[in-house]
Simulated scan of single mutants.
Amino acid sequence: MPLPTMTNRFNAKPPARLELRGVDVAYGETTVVSDVDVLLEDGTIGCLLGPSGCGKTTLLRAIAGFEPVTRGSILIRGHRISEPDWTLAPEHRHIGMVFQDFALFPHLSVAGNIGFGLRTFSAPRRQTRVDELLELVGLSEAADIYPHELSGGMQQRVALARAMAPRPDILLLDEPFSSMDAELREQLAREVRALLKREAITAILVTHDQFEAFAIADQIGVLDQGRMRQWGTGFELYHQPADRFIADFIGHGVLLPATVMNSGQLRTELGRVDAPLSATLEAGSEVEVLIRPHDILYDEDSPREATIIARAFRGAEFLYTLRLDSGTEVLCLVPSHHCHEVGERIGFQLQAEHLVVFTKGDAG
């Protein structure tokens, strides 16, 4: 068991690095998080991303100290805060948390909410920190009003400022934008990222929204059925998915059957394409290649055509679902000033980069 005086060693303030080493979390006999490894460096914003029920909130609760681990360990600043049969109490972890419903105190003003966790500060020091955070989140003029008088976005900023006020080692955010529409979620995610970076706070966010994750996080971990499928940047997850699950979950795309022609070329029904291939794949091997919407280029003059079977307006672009003559469906992004109706045929060409190839034996 760690020494009772361990928490005093946090005063040395080494980098606020968060580590999870082979972590399992169980409810009774049911393991809901299994063998998860995470390394989040000081000042980095991480994200746990995945569908509902994948274990991301359970993992966040384990980091906060609300759930014990049944295997592995969790460390902050190199010190173990959770391991089997021993858990450092949440109030001793120096962790801040922003909840889905913000959990603001309705009877306290904005300033009162932000200063709530600073009761051990002297009055002048507390006022200085509250004023500093009010300015940081752009709410200096709202110091004396109450949460119900604020918009959802403003309430979110107050909740964030309250969690940041004691300068926690790690800040945890549990789907803090889930009640807002998609456009506002991304906007607030960018704002929160800027605030966290200005304060150099290490943070980890839970969300099911990949665009929210892309907007806020430096590193993203995709969870599925309690397991970490891939940990990396948004670019890596999109362009270098580790398996079929990641390829399907992140972004849009379809897997087309293909045949290996030689060491660097595939034959597909869209034509021949260059692709990174394993040296173990022999000519004639059957594989699948991931085709993203940006790989299908709209071209009015192309002899190759497909039929539009669905479209989605995205502002600057339409996302068209195209059906090839073979019946295969692909996705294509087209500038929205080219407006075509469902049922029309349009020309296209394959202009593929960052192709990802899966062999028949790949997991997913």
Rank of each mutant, 00 (worst) to 15 (best):
P4T: 06
N11W: 15
P15Y: 00
A16Q: 15
R17I: 08
R17H: 06
D24I: 04
A26I: 04
G28V: 09
E29C: 11
E29K: 15
V33S: 01
V33R: 07
S34V: 04
D42L: 01
D42W: 00
L48I: 06
G55H: 05
G55I: 03
T57V: 02
L59P: 06
G72Q: 04
R77E: 13
H79W: 12
R80Q: 13
S82M: 09
S82T: 02
E83Q: 15
D85F: 07
T87A: 09
R93E: 08
R93W: 09
V98G: 06
H107D: 04
L118N: 05
Q127L: 07
Q127T: 08
D131K: 10
E135W: 02
L136E: 00
G138H: 05
L139S: 09
E141W: 11
A142R: 14
A142K: 11
A142M: 10
D144Q: 11
I145C: 15
Y146V: 03
E149I: 10
M154E: 14
V158K: 13
A163T: 04
A165L: 08
R167S: 13
R167D: 10
L172Q: 01
L173C: 01
F177D: 03
S178E: 07
A182H: 11
R185Y: 02
R190M: 11
A194V: 13
E199T: 15
T202L: 00
A213Y: 01
D218Y: 05
G221R: 02
V222Q: 03
Q230P: 12
A242D: 04
D243I: 08
H252T: 12
H252D: 14
G253M: 04
P257E: 15
N262P: 00
G264E: 11
L266I: 03
R267W: 05
T268H: 03
E269H: 01
V273W: 08
A275S: 06
A275R: 03
E288V: 07
R292Q: 07
P293C: 05
H294Q: 15
H294N: 12
D295Q: 06
I296Q: 04
D299W: 11
E300S: 12
I309L: 04
I309G: 00
R311M: 03
A312T: 15
A312H: 15
F313H: 08
G315N: 12
F318R: 01
L322P: 02
D325Y: 06
G327N: 13
G327H: 10
V330T: 12
C332T: 05
H340P: 06
E344Y: 02
E344F: 07
L350Y: 13
A352Q: 14
E353I: 09
E353G: 14
H354Q: 14
T359Y: 05
T359S: 12
T359L: 07
K360W: 13
G364S: 01
